[in-house]
């Protein structure tokens, strides 16, 4: 895991080993293990960082190696979240794991009303280096109480950074950046990302917050997607490429801070925008991105924006019903085709 080898004179040489393929879960655990190794003040409060799926055993290596710094709290979300915040105010670097995203509702007063406000209310004097981690979204059978994507609600709470990786390389680079940022940060993972494989550098670098990544370059339609929706958009990109439609797939990676420039530049180039995100439609992540593009570069849009989101109903249990609401590759491709077929907006 070492980023570089060091000779006896203390000089650094680039690691010559080839990059590896890791699952998202492996990359996440590797990032946590590295933080544990490098930072004696780094603590994890919570037990199910990888969820309850088969990947969960990967986390046991961290637990075995650093038993004093992985704290298993009782089922008391508001209590242990508050503990994390207080510990962060007193010098620790804390990752509070809330497991399923819906459980953050049990801790909302501490996240939204304490951590998010603490710096501002102190006049900028108090840093709270804490990461709130959870697994959001449609996970297959989670139904109404275990499928939430609270990041839009949290985006409406100034004082929280919000990070939504979509690949093993991104989670590997973003988690250390989140912890080291020194600010309260919501780190949004998706349980369906956990088994996804991808290339991760053998000497991974931190990914700065607020820097989007163009996952595919294209000139016809900009698709902005977040978290697992990026993975759903990739097969849609392939399918549409075979139809001669070139998508530019933009992954903001963090919405607070948001790389507005990369989104606006892409839409200025393509003139068409589809936004894919698993928060519910109204006041969701897609709504805000649509509003920014409309306010900044309406004249660049050739056709109206389309949002592909989870509709405004609770998430049902039955696989057929859940799929009806999902931001599937089919829905994404259909939205892009609609964009290409629409008559261009006429302008005076």
């Amino acid at each position: 895991m070492s980023a570089a080898t060091t000779d006896k004179a203390g000089e650094h040489f680039p690691d010559q080993r080839p990059d590896r393929e890791l699952t998202y879960a492996e990359a996440l655990v590797e990032a946590i293990a590295e933080l544990m190794k490098d930072d004696p003040d780094f603590f994890v409060i919570g037990s199910y960082v990888l969820g309850l799926g088969p990947m969960r055993a990967l986390f046991d290596q961290v637990r075995r190696e650093y038993p004093m710094r992985v704290l298993d709290p009782p089922t008391a979300e508001i209590g242990f979240t508050g503990f994390g915040i207080g510990a962060a105010m007193n010098g620790l670097h804390v990752m509070v794991d809330l497991s399923t995203a819906s459980f953050i509702f049990e801790a909302f007063p501490q996240v939204a009303n304490e951590a998010a406000n603490a710096s501002y209310m102190s006049g900028g004097r108090l840093a709270v280096p804490i990461v709130f981690h959870f697994l959001h979204g449609l996970r297959g059978g989670g139904a109404a109480q275990h499928s939430h994507s609270p990041q839009a609600m949290l985006w409406n709470t100034p004082g929280l950074q919000i990070i939504m990786p979509s690949s093993p390389a991104d989670v590997r680079g973003l988690l250390p950046a989140a912890i080291k940022s020194g600010n309260p940060t919501v780190f949004v993972d998706h349980s369906k990302l956990m088994p996804i494989k991808g290339i991760v550098s053998v000497s991974p670098k931190e990914i700065p917050l607020g820097v989007a990544e163009i996952k595919r370059s294209g000139s016809d339609v900009t698709v902005v997607a977040t978290s697992y929706s990026v993975q759903q958009a990739l097969p849609a990109c392939d399918e549409l490429a075979s139809e001669g439609i070139e998508i530019e797939l933009v992954d903001p990676r963090t919405v607070v801070p948001l790389d507005r420039r990369t989104i606006l530049d892409s839409v200025s180039k393509t003139g068409r925008l589809v936004i894919v995100d698993e928060t519910h439609r109204s006041c969701g992540v897609a709504s805000e991105i649509a509003a920014i593009v409309s306010e900044e570069i309406l004249e660049a849009l050739k056709v109206p924006i389309i949002r592909v989101t989870v509709p405004d109903v609770p998430v049902p249990f039955s696989p057929v019903l859940e799929r009806e609401l999902d931001t599937t590759p089919e829905r994404i491709a259909a939205a892009v085709r609609t964009q290409m077929m629409r008559k261009q907006l006429s302008r005076p």
């Binding site: 508001i78 242990f80 508050g82 503990f83 915040i85 207080g86 105010m89 620790l92 007063p109």
Partner: peptide, 16 residues
């Protein structure tokens, strides 16, 4: 609201 935060600060004191 302050009660778990104060206790969490004590946790930091303890582990340090």
């Amino acid at each position: 609201g302050i009660v778990p935060i104060a206790a969490g600060a004590a946790l930091a004191a303890q582990v340090k």
